[in-house]
Computed example of a mutant assay.
Amino acid sequence: MSGSDDTPGLTQATARKALGQHFLFDPDILKRTALAAGPVAGRTVIEVGPGPGGLTRALLDQGAGKVIAVEADERFADALRSWPEAQDGRLHVILKDARKVRWESVLEELGASQPAMIVANLPYNVGTPLLVNWLKAGPWRGEMALMFQKEVAERICAKPNSDHYGRLAVLAHAVCDPHIAFTLPPGAFRPPPKVDSAVAVLHPLPAERVFPHLAKLEEVAGAAFGQRRKMLRAALKPLAKRHGLKAADWLQDLGIDPTARAETLTQDEFRHMASSLVK
């Protein structure tokens, strides 16, 4: 990511394919991404994979109170640490694989305000596992605006009876209200990826609508969509057996058609199945 080829302070270094790096350079797109989930003024914002710092600069320019940038590439981490905002405490740079960061501990150590927003052009190779962990996070995690491959963004935001509806959509809708803010063609990035990209915005649901048993929900959705062409009674047979149940009887008792397929089930039906397995 970056603000412009000529923007002062941005590191001009080549992307590393192994790290899934694709940088943005258009200042208008960067500003739009920075504000996609709402105003960042005065907020703590977590950014993963800042690269040259284009989105980092946009977040700071829009008044973010503190930006916590997690970067696995030491070339960019070192450069960002030289920024004036890193000297005055508004920018904190962590050189680490984002999958290994203990986010809540970092926020507490830095005395950062919570909930923290997460705004990032995510490296393609770590985006989905990071999102799943953030969906399971506690009250420290606030609004998210995340750049993914378009197909992944569609999977996150999908509704029942659509091609992209699956485990990821069930998990996302259990704790957030997700939607796609905008899409971008490959040419918007350097180097250009092979596919379109999209920013998925996820606003946390009100506390009373958040499903509390995400591990069970993930287990049920994973089993149901793991064999998505099968009827539920067949797809869920191994899961039901592990819980001492007969799949067809269990589903009928819950008021769910055993001959239905996973992509037809609503969020409430998935929640109903998951809740019934909580001991």
Results as ranks from 00 to 15, higher is better:
40 V>G: 13
211 F>G: 04
246 K>A: 11
63 G>Y: 09
150 K>M: 06
40 V>R: 07
52 P>I: 08
273 M>G: 06
123 P>Y: 01
36 A>E: 04
265 L>D: 04
34 A>D: 09
265 L>W: 04
106 V>S: 04
256 I>R: 14
153 A>V: 02
201 V>I: 01
135 L>R: 10
2 S>R: 14
210 V>R: 15
162 S>P: 02
270 F>P: 04
20 G>R: 07
188 A>S: 15
87 Q>C: 09
267 Q>G: 11
92 H>F: 12
94 I>A: 04
67 V>C: 15
237 K>T: 06
253 D>K: 13
125 N>Q: 11
61 D>H: 07
136 K>G: 12
241 K>M: 06
214 L>N: 01
161 N>H: 10
101 V>S: 10
26 D>Q: 07
217 L>T: 07
25 F>G: 15
233 R>F: 13
150 K>E: 12
138 G>I: 05
254 L>Q: 03
177 D>S: 14
67 V>P: 15
122 L>A: 03
198 A>R: 10
147 M>E: 08
66 K>C: 13
241 K>W: 04
245 L>N: 01
182 F>L: 02
41 A>T: 12
164 H>W: 06
157 C>P: 09
86 A>W: 04
92 H>Q: 09
37 A>P: 00
204 P>V: 01
132 V>W: 00
41 A>P: 10
77 A>N: 12
122 L>P: 08
240 A>Y: 05
98 A>D: 14
12 Q>R: 13
198 A>P: 13
198 A>D: 12
65 G>L: 08
35 L>R: 12
155 R>M: 00
241 K>Y: 06
30 L>C: 15
29 I>L: 15
82 S>K: 14
228 R>Q: 11
43 R>H: 12
186 P>D: 05
60 L>H: 00
128 T>F: 02
265 L>T: 10
72 A>D: 00
232 L>D: 08
23 F>I: 05
124 Y>N: 10
74 E>I: 13
80 L>G: 09
86 A>I: 02
192 P>G: 13
12 Q>F: 02
210 V>A: 06
200 A>E: 05
87 Q>M: 09
202 L>K: 06
17 K>P: 14
55 L>Q: 05
131 L>N: 11
12 Q>I: 07
111 G>I: 06
137 A>P: 07
133 N>S: 15
189 F>R: 10
258 P>T: 04
275 S>E: 15
255 G>V: 10
159 K>W: 10
128 T>K: 06
242 R>T: 13
73 D>I: 02
207 A>Y: 01
4 S>R: 13
88 D>E: 14
136 K>A: 15
192 P>K: 12
197 S>I: 09
86 A>H: 08
155 R>D: 01
178 P>W: 00
6 D>C: 03
220 V>L: 05
99 R>I: 11
246 K>N: 03
72 A>E: 00
270 F>D: 02
279 K>A: 10
271 R>Q: 14
144 M>T: 09
142 G>I: 07
